[in-house]
Design a protein around this nucleic acid. Sequence first.
DNA 1: CGTAGTGTTGAGTCAAGTCAATGGTTGTGG
DNA 2: CCACAACCATTGACTTGACTCAACACTACG
Lengths: 248, 248
Amino acid sequence: MTSTNHPLDLLVRNLELRARLSQEDRDAILALPYTLRTLDHLTYTIREGDPPRECAVLVSGFAYRQKTTQDGARQIIALHLPGDALDFQNMYLKVSDHSVQMLTRGEVAIIAREELQELAQARPAIGHAILIKTLVEASIFREWVLNVGRRKARERMAHVLCELGSRMDALGLTQEHGYELPMTQEELADALGLTPVHVNRTLKLLEAEGLIMRTRRSIRFPDWERIREAADFNERYLHLDLQVPSSS
Amino acid sequence: MTSTNHPLDLLVRNLELRARLSQEDRDAILALPYTLRTLDHLTYTIREGDPPRECAVLVSGFAYRQKTTQDGARQIIALHLPGDALDFQNMYLKVSDHSVQMLTRGEVAIIAREELQELAQARPAIGHAILIKTLVEASIFREWVLNVGRRKARERMAHVLCELGSRMDALGLTQEHGYELPMTQEELADALGLTPVHVNRTLKLLEAEGLIMRTRRSIRFPDWERIREAADFNERYLHLDLQVPSSS
DNA sequence: CGTAGTGTTGAGTCAAGTCAATGGTTGTGG
DNA sequence: CCACAACCATTGACTTGACTCAACACTACG
């Protein structure tokens, strides 16, 4: 199922969605030494408390960021799609403050932290692109604080479904406003700050309202505008366009 | 009340807590052109939807980041202390995805976005320091997702009180584990994803448990270890030490 | 000394959680 | 190919943490 392309191709395309790269920049990224590895569901890429030594780039499959409280409650902080670098948030810090784990089985390209840091320093455009990516990730964290802090279960659920839809769409992973949702209801609960039981009820509610259609793990939106509104979803925070400041 | 020092001194010291700067770096920051301005409570530094043109550095007073839902519910995403740059999160993006507002009256040094960006590019150590600061801010966002998503009101409240205590302590703004809490209960509620009424009850509960002492807006912790435990507070996520990777 | 903004308290309601049982799917090994 | 096991989804009955509404008290400042 691996494409015939270079595994880091997705990363390059992902960075280029947000920042400009020259041909040399692209080539330099593709020239990075890496190890390709297939990871199972639940495999950790990094654990809270560990010093980051490498940066994993998701080639296929999905992953998430996660923190837990003392008494074991888990909160999923972010979801990651193919092409995402999983460790930009960690690799410049001494100790990781959260864990990253595979949401599905998938492939990962592992790059040594120093290699990536040197490249970012040697090629400012790449360093800039990485900065932009981390800033956009931070923006998503902020939206999640709002989502979990101030929206009710129905809107909250609709909101993550919209976010995933938009982000998958930007990567061309959707089929007519529908996609495979690679999460169990328990995982959804941990992303939303709810219980699995309530997630189930909320999904059924959205379904009864005609806002979503479900078959097993696949989600479709019969009317994007309607769910967008129900979710209070505004994709501005995803910063999906090229981040070249309007110079004036 | 302005110190006789350079207004950007606090920023330099703040950056140096996390990254190494040379004397030339320090001087270069202090040589930045800026405008000093006194802002009242609730004045916006930047509004969601606006293009960032400048970066405000907090010289005195407090500020916060904020987003609101369609129906007007507000969530405070982060709190800022003197020395914090309020717009690192925005200034490399085309449009701001959230607002920043003064929590108290205070002074702000305003620097043009391009000036700061050019400096960051010309002096890699400064660029690196800015990157580290944004990464630490992102770490705090993540902890807030966990706090709001998975902790009950009592722990949640205790947790922000601890965070503020720790951060103020790092700046030398506390007196024996106590500090002036510059927020109304309504603002606290918006930071915690609760209602003002419940904030009031939760504060009284913590007080009754002997975990905090209050007089008007001032907070003291009779027993830091006890509240730390009650809050499930681990300051790792604040990355309070110098972020030089353990090379091995 | 009056007024506006905060803080405090009580009573009643509701969204979401808990507990517990039942049903469905998928994958695996006999 | 079937049967079982493990995991996941669904549902109902009940509980609870947090919200709402509403009144009242305090404090600071003009």
